[in-house]
């Protein structure tokens, strides 16, 4: 299934969908995706008014987004929509603009043409960890959490963060300074931080690049878990094979511009 306004100019093939067929621009389809989600999130919520539910459904889309840096086109008229929770893969060779797509979605790139829409709290696993080197592993993850806003004590929030770090095999390194961690550890801390933020839309830029096989699997499991309530968009070279074909809700393929 293809979508978008002008197929001729498009270099991205849009979202190649799996059987669930949720990633579409069609408003009717969007409504359906939303309702199916509300059933999942709220088993007895048959009486729920669909419109209120719609507001809570994570959603992210591009409509004809074009990005140019210094006159060079990095993304050319790209359209897709990520409709409801699930794992989405953003594939393409390096230089095809994967990082830029994530940056525009995250609101870090404002110089683009077209329309970008994101519903929900966004969190990012950057390609480089971007940690506070002088802070401990736990402190780094805690930066993404505002206990007051969540109505929990700091101690409770720390326990949650420590739990996520534990899942990623960092339970014994909570008080280690981030600057003293290895590259692979840093990347897992960055992942834990992004997960601790409790996002609706999680953007992950090559999150497995510095990890060994075991850690890749653990992190993929965690991402799969969170994807039941969250859009997880993973930029990858492709062919990581960590998620079964049935687990991937849609793929967006980017080709080299020009």
């Amino acid at each position: 299934m293809k979508h978008g306004r002008s197929k001729g100019r498009k270099r991205a093939s849009g979202a190649a969908l799996n059987a669930s067929g949720a990633a579409v621009n069609d408003p009717a389809q969007k409504g359906r995706g939303a309702s199916s989600c509300s059933e999942r999130g709220n088993a007895s919520g048959l009486e729920k008014v669909p419109s209120t539910d719609l507001e809570n459904v994570p959603f992210a889309s591009f409509e004809g987004v074009t990005v140019r840096f210094d006159g060079k086109t990095v993304i050319d008229d790209l359209s897709f929509s990520l409709d409801g929770p699930g794992i989405y893969l953003l594939e393409g060779p390096s230089g095809s603009g994967k990082t830029t797509v994530l940056r525009v979605l995250a609101g870090l790139e404002n110089a683009y043409e077209g329309k970008r829409f994101v519903n929900g709290k966004v969190s990012v696993i950057f390609q480089e960890p971007r940690l506070f080197e002088d802070f401990s592993v736990l402190e780094n993850v805690m930066l993404a959490v505002d206990p007051k806003k969540r109505g929990v004590t700091r101690r409770e929030a720390e326990a949650v963060c420590a739990g996520i770090l534990g899942r990623l095999g960092l339970g014994a390194e909570l008080s280690k300074k981030a600057g003293e961690c290895s590259g692979g550890m840093k990347q897992r801390v960055a992942a834990a931080r992004a997960l601790a933020a409790e996002p609706d839309v999680l953007l992950a830029d090559e999150p497995f690049s510095a990890l060994d096989e075991d850690n890749r699997r653990t992190e993929a499991e965690l991402l799969a878990e969170i994807s039941s309530s969250c859009i997880v968009l993973i930029a990858t070279h492709g062919g990581e094979g960590l998620f079964g074909e049935e687990a991937v809700k849609a793929r967006i393929r980017l080709d080299m511009p020009g």
Partner: peptide
Amino acid sequence: GKLPSGRPSANPGEVAAE
């Protein structure tokens, strides 16, 4: 008084041996 700073992490580079 070395303040806690956010000097960025270096690129993880290759798979870390852990």
